[in-house]
Design a protein around this nucleic acid. Sequence first.
DNA 1: ATGTTAGTTAACCGTGTAGCTAATTAACCG
DNA 2: CGGTTAATTAGCTACACGGTTAACTAACAT
Lengths: 118, 118
Amino acid sequence: MTSALEQRLDATFAALADPTRRAILARLATGDATVNELAEPFALSLPGISKHLKVLERSGLITRRREAQFRPCHLEREALDAAVDWIETNRRLWSERFDKLDEHLRTVHTPSNGDHRD
Amino acid sequence: MTSALEQRLDATFAALADPTRRAILARLATGDATVNELAEPFALSLPGISKHLKVLERSGLITRRREAQFRPCHLEREALDAAVDWIETNRRLWSERFDKLDEHLRTVHTPSNGDHRD
DNA sequence: ATGTTAGTTAACCGTGTAGCTAATTAACCG
DNA sequence: CGGTTAATTAGCTACACGGTTAACTAACAT
């Protein structure tokens, strides 16, 4: 067992299971940022941030490139897909028995402007 | 901060970050099950399963009731909502940045049944 | 060449997880 | 009552995580 897909899910969910990392991702959603920029709002030591970034990088949720002295971090949206797939699949499985969730999800899922369908 | 909401997310994502626990949840989606029933397919000791169930219970993803000698496990779908909310919200945030195509699609306002993809 | 800035690696601590076996509680059944 | 079944707690090992400080590498600036 423990397929590559499973391991990817492990890493992704584990990466999301920390408030600092989720905040980093949210911040990164507004644009690439350097390690120091990321560290500033979190009252964490730089090595602490560095570790979190390594976890995020290993999970594939972010990538880093070299730019002079800086190591800008970049969000990788696709890494989230497997996690969403798993949740959606399972949610649907058991929401067949409790149908109202679906409606709620669609409300959450719907932008002000219309439907957003992949 | 580390609000209660954040902690709930921590626990939920952490609970999902293990293949055994995901398999347990998937199995539970087909109906309530006792600890022994859950343990059987996993080649894990009973105490091992018990620990996983405790993690799942603490995260709110399952509840357990007492029924004679048995402790049937029951899936709690609502516990997943916060996690889905977070992912969907953030995914939208950064897909707005990187997916010009996405914006275009939204403007087009797809005339579907309103159901999910696939 | 020296220093400054950006970031990582090393070493360590405490805690939580993941697993085991062995012992224990709880409920049913003779 | 004693025995069996269901499941947890206790006690152990091992490892990974989140955090620290201190030391290091890498690139730029004088």
